Amino acid sequence: MTQAYPPEGGTGMSMRNLTHLIYGLFALGLLSAGFFGIATIAAIVLAYLKRGEAAGTIYAGHFDWVIKTFWWGLLWVVLSGLATFIFIGWITGVIALVWIVYRLIKGWLALASGQPPIAEY
């Protein structure tokens, strides 16, 4: 039988709890419609800072997942904002937000089941 969560040494917050915190901060920033946008920025900064420590574990995939979701989501939201001048930006903006929420939920559920997030192409 394999162990879903490798033992973690040291003190402080475990990688699993840290990953939950990152997903939670990202979600807080989204659910507050940007009011707590600093929470999303904090999630990304934490993911970048702890990425090296998570190398070789399932958590590395989660950190990459959150970072990619942030940057691609930001790109599409900005492009949608620019496209509102031709009245199509509202549609693409909603699609971008739905995609961001989908990836956030999919990643968080994968974490809860002890698996790395898997992109479906």
Score class of each variant (00 low, 15 high):
T2F: 12
Y5A: 09
P6E: 14
P7M: 06
T11F: 09
G12Q: 05
L18I: 00
H20S: 01
I22C: 07
I22T: 05
G24Y: 12
L25W: 07
L25C: 06
S32V: 13
A33N: 04
A33H: 02
A33C: 13
G34S: 10
T40M: 15
A42I: 13
A43R: 11
I44S: 00
I44M: 01
V45S: 07
L46T: 05
L46G: 00
A47Q: 09
R51E: 06
R51S: 02
R51V: 00
G52V: 03
E53P: 00
E53C: 00
A54N: 07
G56K: 01
I58H: 01
I58F: 03
Y59W: 13
Y59S: 01
Y59V: 05
G61Y: 04
H62I: 04
D64M: 07
W65F: 10
V66T: 11
I67A: 07
K68G: 11
T69S: 11
W71I: 12
W72F: 14
W72K: 12
G73Y: 07
L74K: 09
W76C: 07
V77D: 03
V78P: 01
V78H: 08
V78I: 15
G81F: 07
G81N: 02
T84M: 12
F85T: 06
F85E: 07
I86P: 00
F87Q: 09
G89N: 13
T92H: 05
T92L: 08
V94P: 02
I95Q: 02
V98E: 12
W99G: 05
W99I: 02
I100M: 14
R103M: 12
L104F: 13
I105P: 08
I105G: 02
K106T: 12
G107P: 04
L109I: 13
A110G: 10
A110L: 07
A110I: 05
L111H: 02
L111G: 07
A112M: 14
A119F: 15
E120C: 01
